[in-house]
Design a binder for these strands. Structure first.
Lengths: 366, 366
DNA sequence: AGGAACGTTGACAGCGCTACCAGCAACGAC
DNA sequence: GTCGTTGCTGGTAGCGCTGTCAACGTTCCT
């Protein structure tokens, strides 16, 4: 009798154990901790499993063991290039491990994030990767109460929930503005879209740098809640120019906007960098290839994702990192779009060669 | 005794049922098919669940019901903008449904795809979305034997495994070339990277169109297996020009390459479109914003993902579409980069305005 | 009025696996 | 020789939920 619902063809652990001549529990151990078996049984179980094409039933395992081998990842957007690089790092790090990635999109809403967090935690994930440090009080409490390792990515800040990996958007923006000061720019505009917490911190960094130099003016800042795009960069820049015709530089909260600004300059026959300097943020691949090549703040997105997932997996396996907070830093990559006014801004063909060498950059494509 | 391992705080279906004064099985039905309950019990269970903050244990559900509520998605790349649009559509469609998305990256390897497929199928997914029509024989057999609905996306072709949604890359490439012919172009080069099956079909379409016009020459084709990038577009174009200095147009297998070609033209002071016309593929957002604006073949990527997931979910729920194969088509979006040689190619500011209107395009950002 | 049909509910028995603990042999220490 | 100690193995008893089927009350038909 019994096992009424079992389909005949189904290979269960019991079948493997029977073929190997061991008890099911021994076979089970083979898959979780092979070293615990004697060599003889180990090879017997191994070949039996292969012969039958056994694949463990993860639902049963999760139910019995009261934990899953799922790493939950909460990111705000699937569209944004930035997150696709981070994600690629996460997926790469998870490959080969026994953990699988469960992705959810918060759509830049911390309420949505809270809801998803509740859902995730109920499934007892092995670990969690969450974006940023701006959770709701409720979310924060859930994260602190969670009995799994957690990595916050994209930013660093005080009191991490658990582990944290990112960089200071505030400092990065200040560095970008400082670079423009060094090039002799004074009327530096800020162009930002979406204005999520990280973009907001870039704005804060810009504002503080400008204030330090006694150059801040509110009208130099043009932002919108609209999602970012190249086209939007052109539109925001148009606004900015109308407010301040004597602008001599633009710091863009991301590279898409910077590209849009570049195109708009071309349309208006504004010389870059002679009249206006442009600095972007993230250093996407095309920045090195544009004409003129575009200065940007390089952030280590792929590495961030990969390290986050690696740290998380190590922590799950009991090896907590000695450094729970990792600052991956940033670097202002100075290119033609922000070179000094009087330099030759178009060493054209030779610069193209230089740009082509950048194909090999680590944080490029897969 | 019993329930030794149960943590005190854990809310199970039994607790909800007890608070609601019904049997566990009735409570269970509430979550799966509320209509089957009388109004009274329905509201009682509902409020009990809310009061206790009950969240179902998916592992237990999967084990008991012998099926999961997971939709497996196999795509070849996370980096490619094209797939991020498709994915966004898939995630959007899955939201609000009870299905969750399990993503895996085949890295453009059909062997890797086969391996992942085996893994997925062992977990009895509710449905599967796979990219393209070029599976291994083994994969194909597994897909046909799978007892869940399957959607193939990105392409259409003969004998679908189950459902299929996409468009003909071959026809799209032919249309792009036909457009260039109409503009009076003859020496039309092809630039392609990665050369996955879909890019290969675009090349095939290009070759056939060129042969039909008796204009095909092998040296007009420059391809590489390297992953695509803007910089690479410039490099491939440089090769192409060396092979054929009298080139009058380039058809690029994707928009990143097209942007790279545009920048390279600018670097070399080649007038676009007067000397050389450029046509891209996919119609990414920046194409409408570039200077000159870039012609491209629009493909409905977001819609493809969304429709694929929607069809799949409907099929899972037993409502199979009347049309198992859906051709989403494409459209050549004609812009300045391929306008006739003698037209005014830079109605600059007014065209910028036009470009800005394109912010509202459906297949843009989230 | 009797019975069929329907809508609603509950009891029972697992789903495939693992935590827990017990047992057993082999080994070394005293 | 006895007593731990270690290494490996197995039995038992669930993990939390749902499929199946039977049973109930109600309504509608003849």
């Amino acid at each position: 009798m019994g096992r009424k619902r079992t389909k005949s063809g189904k290979i269960r652990l019991a079948e493997v154990a029977e073929l190997a001549g061991v008890s099911p529990i021994t076979a089970s151990r083979f898959f979780r901790n092979p070293e615990a078996l004697s060599i003889g049984k180990r090879t017997r179980v191994e070949s039996a499993a292969k012969e039958l094409g056994y694949v463990p039933n993860l639902a049963a395992r999760a139910l019995a063991s009261q934990r899953t081998e799922v790493i939950g990842v909460l990111i705000p957007s699937l569209t944004n290039n930035v997150f696709s690089d981070v994600l690629r790092g996460i997926y790469d790090a998870s490959e080969g491990s026994r953990y699988s990635i469960q992705l959810s999109n918060t759509r830049y809403s911390i309420l949505q994030e809270e809801k998803l967090l509740r859902l995730f935690l109920a499934q007892k994930p092995a670990g969690l990767i969450v974006t940023g440090i701006d959770q709701t009080t409720e979310s924060r409490a859930m994260l602190e109460a969670a009995d799994c390792p957690i990595v916050q990515i994209m930013e660093i800040g005080p009191d991490p929930v658990d582990m944290m990996i990112g960089f200071s958007h505030y400092d990065a923006a200040r560095a970008a503005v400082a670079h423009l000061f060094e090039q002799g720019r004074r009327k530096i505009g800020f162009v930002g879209a979406r204005m999520d917490p990280r973009v907001q911190r870039r704005l804060d960094g810009y504002v503080s740098a400008m204030k330090d130099a006694a150059l801040f003016e509110q009208r130099l800042v043009v932002t919108t809640a609209t999602p970012t795009s190249v086209t939007l960069g052109g539109a925001l820049f148009t606004d900015l120019l109308a407010r301040e015709p004597n602008l001599d530089a633009v710091f863009c909260a991301n590279d898409d906007l910077a590209l849009g600004v570049l195109f708009e300059c071309r349309r208006r026959e504004i010389a870059v960098p002679e009249q206006i300097a442009i600095v972007g943020f993230n250093d996407l691949e095309f920045m090195a290839s544009a004409v003129p090549t575009l200065t940007s703040v390089r952030t280590n997105r792929y590495e961030m994702g990969k390290t986050a997932a690696t740290m998380l997996i190590e922590a799950i396996d009991g090896r907590r990192p000695e450094q729970p907070v990792l600052d991956l830093g940033f670097r202002v990559i100075e290119r033609q779009s922000s070179s000094p006014r009087h330099s030759d801004s178009r060493p054209t063909v030779s610069s193209a060669g230089a740009a082509n060498k950048m194909v090999a950059l680590p944080s490029s494509h897969d």
